[in-house]
Amino acid sequence: MSITIQHISKSFKDVVALKDVSFEVKEGELFGLIGPDGAGKTTLFRILTTLLIANEGTATVAGFDVINDYKSIRNSVGYMPGKFSLYQDLTIEENLIFFATIFGTTIEKNYDLIKDIYIQIEPFKNRRAGKLSGGMKQKLALCCALIHKPKVLFLDEPTTGVDPVSRKEFWDMLKRLQKKGITILVSTPYMDEAELCDRIAFIQDGKILEIDTPEAIVKHYPKPMYNIRSNNMYQLINSLKAYEHQHSVYPFGEFVHYTDNRLDFNPKELMLYLESKNLSEISIQITQPTIEDTFMELAK
């Protein structure tokens, strides 16, 4: 096991950030921690990277205990905080050399690991980090987190505030790193990124709701899911929410994801109801629930 977390709890004064959290991450796994802002993701990262001490419970990273062997952990993990935290007034190259030096290594020694990423920002290596675009900052931060060949990589919301193209590139990079045997624990508020992980854990209000593979987790969804569309989206949502048998109504792109709380639900009945509300061009089709739907259902 690369990361084991057992009954970790942490509270700040009267705010409970984590409540009895336990899970394990296998070696070489790309594990996603999915949850809204304030769910406790960053707190958990800070405990695992030895920046914070939990009130209760134990955790190990790369086989080392987070409290007793914190020094060994610091040698073998890479951490990329959610906020860009490199020296804005140093250049790309200087930042990288700085982190290599304090890890007691050099860029050359581990160049093969960061090569794919570094090549993309190398043309700007004499530019100060503060002057880089969001995507480039992200790549630089990843390079700095990888420069000492960590066994475990912690990425706290690495793609928040990054454009869709750079986000996709970033996840491709993570997949490649995973192939090199690095265990990656990544947190994200984006549900679409969850599908790219080997396994995901839903976290909300400091509690783990569910842990499984993205494919399996949607099967936990208890009800059949319907895609509904019509000529007037706003009125459709309002009408569905007013419908007495509705279980959940969430807008999803051009559709509304709808579940009913009856076991013998007949779409035709709903169709008649919607037509009575002066909606036209109505279509109701059964569909697969997404990770987002599952999360919303579990978080209810």
Partner: peptide
């Protein structure tokens, strides 16, 4: 925070 995670 970044520096605190390093073995420095």
């Amino acid at each position: 925070e970044q520096i605190n995670v390093t073995p420095i």
